[in-house]
Design a protein around this nucleic acid. Structure first.
Length: 152
DNA sequence: GCCAACGTTGGC
DNA sequence: GCCAACGTTGGC
């Protein structure tokens, strides 16, 4: 049974075009327990929406796929990384990440403002007031609804 | 740049 | 274990 997710990223730090270029990338740097726990629930082959935040038009810009299940986040051990966490060690890793691969970019961004207008999406965590989770689950019905908006 | 909402920290 | 203070997120 495949599962669906949503990955947030600020395009100025890592965009869907960066993922297209890289092909696959570790989704590292997540320092929130709930988001980490969702990554630990992911299986290879799960699909996710790629969401651009903190930009001119925040919204869903494409699709990615889980290419590797969760494993320890190496940036937490790297003294020079902005994501370094002295409480995490290779022996007792605190933070994990999956690898994600590029699937496709939508022709146009599906803006957050449009998502908010669709009753069938009203329960998405993304649309809840004040929520900030950078990795979120997406229900199958929500996935299909959004795919239609993306011209699938 | 503003600010509401949230998660984390640390004193007690 | 409580909770105030703080830092961060992210839309606007």
């Amino acid at each position: 049974m495949s599962k669906y997710w949503l990955f947030k990223s600020e395009p100025q730090s890592y965009s869907i075009e960066d993922l297209r270029r890289d092909g696959t990338t570790p989704w590292s740097g997540v320092r929130n327990y709930q988001a980490r726990n969702f990554m630990q629930m992911m299986s290879v082959g799960d699909e996710g929406f790629f969401y651009h935040s903190s930009c001119a038009v925040p919204g869903i810009v494409g699709i990615c796929r889980v290419a590797r299940a969760a494993y320890p986040d190496a940036t937490a051990f790297d003294l020079r990384s902005e994501y370094y966490d002295p409480k995490s060690s290779p022996e007792h890793p605190r933070w994990m990440n999956v690898d994600v691969s590029f699937v496709r970019a939508f022709r146009e961004v599906i803006p957050l403002t449009l998502l908010r207008e669709i009753a069938a999406l009203a329960k998405m965590p993304l649309l809840q007031r004040g929520q900030r989770l950078s990795v979120q689950p997406v229900q199958t019905a929500e996935w299909r609804t959004i795919l239609k908006l993306g011209g699938a």
